[in-house]
């Protein structure tokens, strides 16, 4: 299945959640390749959630914004929920001024909170085990 050349962005699997991150040096071709690979992995791994860490992105222009929105839509069609985590404050301000709201994209303050929103806790068993309320 993974016949295509990798774009260098690692995609890890933790249970039924895929964890990945975007790097600052992402060029357009790699961004497209990344979307392709992630979509394939969601389907082959049967993922129910995807965490995209963007805490290292120093800018988000309309191209990257579109990539994130398309990714979210495609994942949703495949039955997975995407959370984009760790947007830096200057990036958020710029994005809003640019006129982009990332409609439909769910966000979290950081990867840890994003994973929690996807049902993952530091001490948690597999998600279907229902870790509800145990750490409160």
């Amino acid at each position: 299945m993974n016949g295509r050349p990798s774009n260098g962005v690692p995609i890890l699997r933790l249970g039924d959640v895929l964890v990945t991150g975007l790097l600052n040096e992402l060029d357009d071709k790699s961004a497209v390749a990344f979307t392709d690979e992630l979509t394939t992995r969601i389907s082959t791994d049967g993922a129910r959630g995807v965490l995209v860490d963007i805490s290292r992105l120093e800018i988000i222009d309309s191209f990257v914004a579109r990539t994130l929105m398309e990714l979210t839509t495609m994942a949703r069609l495949l039955g997975a929920r995407v959370i984009v985590a760790g947007m830096r404050p200057p990036v958020a301000i710029t994005l809003v001024e640019l006129g982009l709201q990332l409609d439909g994209v769910e966000t979290a303050l950081n990867a840890e909170l994003g994973m929690a929103a996807l049902g993952w806790y530091q001490s948690a068993q597999p998600p279907q085990g229902g870790g509800r309320d145990t750490d409160r």
Binding site: E58, I60, D61, F63, P90, V91, I93, T94, E97, L98
Partner: peptide
């Protein structure tokens, strides 16, 4: 923040 604005605009 100004850095981010200008680099983003340049990218666009």
């Amino acid at each position: 923040i100004d850095q981010t604005r200008v680099v983003t605009a340049a990218s666009e």
